[in-house]
């Protein structure tokens, strides 16, 4: 089994959902509040994971653009739940050594006096291991 096949299987297992159920309606991308900021959009994550084309997804900033709003999870008519693929790819990426997107020493510059702790812990959960 090639490396990319392994990676594909890992991502699908980690996501726990089935990309083959996608009927390519694009609703996930249409409803995504941050789709405009993504190079690869939610429906492309689904398609590319199904194809095993994971490397470009690992290397795009789009994995840090998902807001975890669960809109695509809720509204996908086929129960594909695309954000789960974005999450699975992001987790595969930040688990690698040295791939944290947010480091603790970056935090002080990002703070303002009203920023709730919730924002910081969430960003860490999403960006770092």
């Amino acid at each position: 089994m090639s490396f990319s096949n392994n990676l594909k299987e890992n991502v699908i297992r980690s996501a726990g959902v089935d990309p083959k159920k996608c009927m390519k309606c694009g609703k996930c991308t249409a409803t995504c509040p941050n789709g405009n900021e993504m190079e690869y959009k939610p429906h492309q994550f689904v398609y590319m994971v199904e194809k095993g084309d994971i490397e470009p997804l690992m290397n795009t900033d789009s994995i840090y653009k998902c807001l975890s709003c669960f809109a695509c999870v809720e509204r996908c008519p086929r129960g594909v739940e695309p954000a789960k693929f974005i999450e699975a790819v992001r987790v595969a990426k930040i688990r690698k050594q040295g791939e944290n997107h947010l480091k603790a020493d970056m935090i002080p510059d990002l703070l303002d006096e009203d920023l709730p702790q919730q924002a910081i812990v969430t960003a860490f959960r999403k960006y770092s291991k």
Binding site: R13, S14, G16, S68, V73, A88, V121, F124
Partner: peptide, 15 residues
């Protein structure tokens, strides 16, 4: 702390 966000990855367990 709950961590602020639920990780959608099924194999994220410690958090």
């Amino acid at each position: 702390c709950c961590g602020g966000a639920y990780s959608m990855a099924k194999d994220e367990i410690a958090s």
